[in-house]
C-alpha cells in the first residue's frame, strides 16, 4: 500500500488576547475533499503536534460550513478567506493559518469582530419602521435596484475586506469597506432612503469614506463578489452632494 499522504499545517497560535503569538505545526492524514475547517476538526479530535506532543486544541470559530455565515474567516496562506471554503487540494503546502490581526485576537484563530457590528450601528444599517404610525406594506422596489441591493445584502460581515484593507487596523480609524457597502444598501431601500442623510453624514465624519486610500484590496478579497469599490465611489459622490447641501442650504 502506498504511503499515507499527509497535510502539513503551520498555525499561528496565541493563548490569550495579551500573550505573545507562536507557531505550531501539525501533520494530518490526507483524506479526499478535506477543507481547512475539517482539518481543524481533526486537530481538535487528536491535538498532537508535528513533534508528537499533545497540545491544547486549536481554537477557531465556524458555523454554517457553506460560506454564508462568515464566522470562519482567517488568514490562509497570507490571504483572508473563509476556512470552510478553503479546499486542501487547492492550497499550497505547508498551509499557513493565522488569525486576522486587523481585529483583536481572543485565542488562536478566534478574533473579536464586534467593531464591524459597531460600524453597522454608526451608519444606521437598518430600515427604521417603528413609530407611532400604522405599519403598512413596504413600497415597491425597482427590480433593477433590487438586483443591486441583493448583491450587497449577501455581505456576511466576515471581515475579509477589513483584513485585506491596508487602511483598516489599530493604526487608523477608517470604518472599512463593509459598513460603507451596507450604508449604500439601506440607502437603496424604498423606506431606508429616508435616513440617507444620516448614513451619509456618519460616513462624512472622521474615519468615514474619505479615509479610503483606493488600494481596492476589498473588492478582490470579498468572498461574495460585492463590488465594494463601486459603492465606496458612490458614497463619495453622495457625500459630495451632501457637503454642497450643507454649505449652501444651512
Amino acid at each position: 500500500m502506498a504511503e499515507q499522504k499527509k497535510v502539513h499545517f503551520i498555525i499561528e497560535r496565541q493563548d490569550s488576547p495579551d500573550s505573545a503569538p507562536y507557531t505550531e505545526e501539525f501533520l494530518l492524514d490526507y483524506r479526499p475533499a478535506m477543507n481547512v475547517v475539517s482539518s481543524l476538526m481533526e486537530i481538535q479530535k487528536n491535538p498532537v503536534n508535528k513533534a508528537g506532543k499533545k497540545v491544547s486544541p486549536v481554537v477557531w470559530e465556524c458555523n454554517c460550513l457553506e460560506k454564508v455565515c462568515g464566522a470562519c474567516m482567517m488568514v490562509i496562506n497570507g490571504k483572508a478567506r473563509q476556512a470552510c471554503a478553503a479546499l486542501i487540494d487547492q492550497l499550497e503546502q505547508p498551509i499557513r493559518l493565522a488569525p486576522a490581526r486587523t481585529f483583536p485576537v481572543i485565542r488562536d484563530l478566534m478574533i473579536d469582530r464586534s467593531v464591524m457590528f459597531e460600524n453597522l450601528k454608526k451608519v444606521q444599517a437598518w430600515v427604521a419602521v417603528d413609530g407611532s404610525w400604522e405599519v403598512k406594506p413596504a413600497d415597491r422596489q425597482n427590480p433593477y435596484t433590487a438586483t443591486e441591493a441583493y448583491e450587497i445584502s449577501r455581505c456576511m460581515t466576515c471581515g475579509c475586506c477589513m483584513e485585506a484593507c491596508p487602511n483598516v487596523g489599530p493604526q487608523s480609524d477608517f470604518i472599512g469597506p463593509a459598513a460603507i457597502g451596507q450604508a449604500h444598501l439601506f440607502n437603496l431601500h424604498p423606506t431606508g432612503q429616508y435616513d440617507k442623510h444620516k448614513r451619509v453624514g456618519a460616513l462624512m465624519q472622521k474615519g468615514g469614506s474619505s479615509s479610503c486610500g483606493n488600494s481596492q484590496n476589498c473588492v478582490q478579497a470579498c468572498p461574495k463578489q460585492i463590488k465594494l469599490t463601486t459603492y465606496i465611489a458612490q458614497m463619495n459622490r453622495d457625500i459630495n452632494k451632501q457637503a454642497l447641501k450643507n454649505i449652501f442650504s444651512k
Binding site: 488568514v75 497570507g78 490571504k79 485585506a164 491596508p166 487596523g169 493604526q171 477608517f174 484590496n217
Partner: peptide
C-alpha cells in the same frame, strides 16, 4: 494619511494595491 496605512503588497499583490503602496 500615509501613517494610517499598513502596507501589505506582499500578501495582496494586486496591481491597485501596488499602486497604493507606491503612492
Amino acid at each position: 494619511i500615509a501613517m494610517q496605512a499598513k502596507l501589505n503588497p506582499g500578501r495582496y499583490g494586486y496591481m491597485r494595491n501596488k499602486q497604493f503602496t507606491l503612492q
